[in-house]
Structure formats: structure tokens, C-alpha cells
Amino acid sequence: MAVPVAAVPSTGAEPDRQSFKPDLERIEIELLLEGIFRHYGFDFRAYAYASIRRRLWKRIEEEGLSSVSALQERVLHDPEMMEKLLLDLSINVTSMFRDPGFYQTFREHVVPLLRTYPFIRLWHAGCSTGEEVYSMAILLREEGLYDRSRIYATDINEVVLQRAKAGIFPLERMQEYTDNYMRAGGKRSFSEYYTAKYGGALFDQSLTKNVVFSQHNLVTDRSFSEFNVILCRNVLIYFDKTLQSKVHGLFYDSLAMFGVLGLGSKETLRFMAHEECYQQIAPPEKIFRKVR
């Protein structure tokens, strides 16, 4: 009885294509993404469709254009438009200690594992503006592990990496972050980690002493090392299932045996080729350990 809708051919589950022209628009979107890939090298071709469509239209409307094809004309001839679009397409919404339960569980269940290692390599894939990198650096420092850790923080987007390096976050969010920090099991006063400066909260620069920020594209680039921990939270949700599976292959290849993979709270390894290779450490948090 419980059959996925799309698997039942006669239920009308396929999008009805008579009252509007999604087919034509889909062609336009595929052409645009193909053009971007071939001209600029950014590969958005396997991103989740509804979401990428929505963000393309946001840009189309902001530019006063009326079709995807019109945007294509602009993007292919104007690198500055591509830069704008790149910011639109890579969602850069993040916060410090997002989902405090994740960090709490990480402290309780992953830190003891990490203590057994002389040196810890972490990869934060899709780190955006860096809020979660600083969160993890703070956690590792409080647990006495920071000095033997190295965090590789990567993102597709050079602009957000620059912001991550600067470590200046909006002052008006510090109340929310302080609250998150405490619920994440924080051991000190959160305000010790930043000073009000440059119109924002400037974070303690020693937190990035062992952080390497660099550009990396999950879609087109290969593994670049072997890690004990890979964090990639709320990044793969923008990919379609085929691409998700491919990136999970990359993570699997990049994780040492018994290494830890941390995903977003509503992400899953279900239906992925590597599902059987992991054990969930402490449900419901999406922290998995590579066991085979």
C-alpha cells in the first residue's frame, strides 16, 4: 500500500503540464545551467529543481527581466552577473551552534572518540560564512582538543570564505547565539569569544589558528585528504538524490575508518549507496560513524 506517489503511473502524480509551460521553462533552466557550467565551471545541473528554480526567479525579478532565457543572456556575457547569481544560488543562511542538540551530542559522544587520536583532521564542507566553523573551534578548545586539531573549511564561494576568515558576525545575533551556545553545552561565557568591533562581533582570531579556509566544489572537485570528522550540514539538501549519492561517495572515500559524519537534522542516509557503511551514533542527531 505504501508506495511512493511517483512510482504509481496511473495516479496522475506526474506534474500536469497542460495549464502552464513547465517543460519549456525546464528547457530554459537546463540550458542556463549548462551554459554556466561550460563557461564558468560552476555545476548546478544536479541541484534540487524546485529550489534552484525559485532562486533563479528571485534574480530574474530583481533584475527586472521576464524569463530565464533573458537571464541567460545577461549571465553569459557579464561575469558580475554571474557573481551575483552565485551568491543567490549558494544559500548562505547559517548561524552559530545551529541546532544546539547536535553540538551537545557531539560533545558527549564524539569528543571521547577524538580524545584517542593524537591528531584530529576535520573537514567542514560547505562552511558558508563560517559560523559553524567558529562554533566547532570553540567546542574543541573547551574540550582541550583544539591544539591537536586542524579544520579544513571549504565552500564553493570565495566571497563567503573571505567573510568566514574575517570572523565578524552581526552583533544583533549574539543574543540568539549565546542562547544556542549555552544549550549546546558551552562551558564558559560566550562573550569571552568576541569583542564589539568594526560594527560587529569580532571573534577571537586564535580560534582560526588551526583553520584552513579554501575553495572546494563538492560537485566537481575530488577528495583532498583523509579526515576523522566531516561536517556537512544543510548543504546536500540543495542537491538532487543522484548528486547527494555521489557526494556521499566522496565523503566516504575521505573519511578514515571509524571517522564521523555530521549531517543536518533533517538529512538522512536513507536510500544512499553508503547507508550500510555507517552507524548512527546517538539518534535523533544525525551523527554517523563509518564502520565498514
Binding site: P4, A6, E14, A48, Y49, A50, S51, I91, Y238, K266
Partner: peptide
Amino acid sequence: APANYHILIEAGHLSLTIEE
């Protein structure tokens, strides 16, 4: 829909996003 995520209906499945 889970708290703090947008939900998008795609052909045969659902996607989540954390856009603004």
C-alpha cells in the same frame, strides 16, 4: 514540515531548504 525549514514540493518527493 519540520520547524525552521522551508518545504518544497517536487515531482514525487519533498525537498527542504533553510533559505531566509
